[in-house]
Nucleic acid binder design. Structure first.
Lengths: 188, 188
DNA sequence: TATTTATTTAACCAGCGGTCAATAAAATGT
DNA sequence: ACATTTTATTGACCGCTGGTTAAATAAATA
């Protein structure tokens, strides 16, 4: 036997959609190519036609997410509102991204696996730098770099706590707003 | 062949001591029963005489760690220092615990896995309540509950960010101290 | 000496990442 | 319409790791 015409043709996108879910639910090491294949209803060999290795498949996913987050940050920065509000919205936007793309967020910032880290590399830091830059400018340089780092980590804490405990950003919007205001209380 | 009288008898404690080290260094998934046995100089089969499974051995350790965290909090609370400093040390102590017992922290507060969660139960919330209570009292009731929650989440953010990026608490002590001071800036 | 306790050894089994020849379906050429 | 080529897919296989178990056996105990 070989191809079965009753099933849709396997595409990289289909594989990535399934892999994304599994990696997020179980982590990189705990997901096997065989599991992914099973979920897709195809053989694991087929995956190797579309991706050279498990690592390559994983990396393809991670790249997507970083682009998406950068876009969302840009959206806020281009808005025509006051700086202080923009600042708040940057922070809220980070939480919103995290909780509305939970699967993405976990892979980008929370998976600890060594092999995975080598792939992801300096990308989280690039996000941070963009974020830090925005905050620094928007605060009229009143925010110190150290404080920005504390803010970033604290936003990460919020997201990572509510991950999987909550369906979407809207569920905890009030808590998020309070958290952001709390973080800005002493500094602006 | 069977027992070798020149070696000390294997005890649960000996196993746990070695397992603890390995789990801390490499994480749950990355440690095998065979590794633990090798380190102990015994056969891997012997471990199953003392523990039913790898999971049981691990959970025995995790339980210890909830006790340990509570003890460390108590240690701070019993110190003879000013309330504000005590407050800071509670927060610092939390970070310290997290980074000096990284793989356990992950299990205690970060793993979403259902099987694990059932074992761990409501213990993280108990920790939080104790923590919240301490902060509330130490601040002379100036800290609001919502703010305490933001602080807790922000400390968690710090720990979870540096997890596996760092060998021990000492590596980032300065950043930790700054973070704590930052969080208290607006409220005390 | 007989029994209980602790330990070793070897095997079992399931799963992994990855490879590859075989093959069926689809696309293409004629 | 048919033949050929290309593309996509399968499933068997390799070497390996690792949790778990059962039989054998040594040491301690009574």
């Amino acid at each position: 036997m070989a191809r079965d015409a009753s099933k849709p043709v396997l595409t990289p996108k289909m594989i990535m959609d399934v892999a994304r879910d599994l990696f997020v639910k179980n982590g990189y090491q705990q997901v096997s190519m065989r599991q992914i294949a099973k979920e897709l209803g195809c053989s694991h060999g087929a995956l190797y036609y579309h991706f050279q290795s498990k690592a390559e498949l994983f990396f393809a996913l991670v790249k997507e997410y970083f682009v998406l987050l950068e876009q969302e940050l840009n959206n806020v920065l281009e808005k025509d509102i006051e700086n202080l509000e923009k600042l708040e919205q940057c922070m809220l936007g980070y939480i919103k991204f995290g909780l509305n793309h939970q699967s993405h967020y976990e892979i980008m910032f929370m998976l600890k696996d060594d092999e995975v880290r080598n792939f992801i590399n300096e990308q989280p830091m690039k996000v941070y730098e963009k974020f830090a830059n925005a905050l620094y400018t928007l605060s009229n340089k009143k925010l110190q770099l150290k404080d920005i780092w504390s803010i970033f980590i604290s936003l990460h804490g919020f997201v990572s706590h509510y991950l999987s405990h909550v369906v979407s950003y809207e569920d905890i919007e009030n808590a998020a707003i309070h958290h952001v205001k709390f973080l800005l209380k002493g500094v602006c």
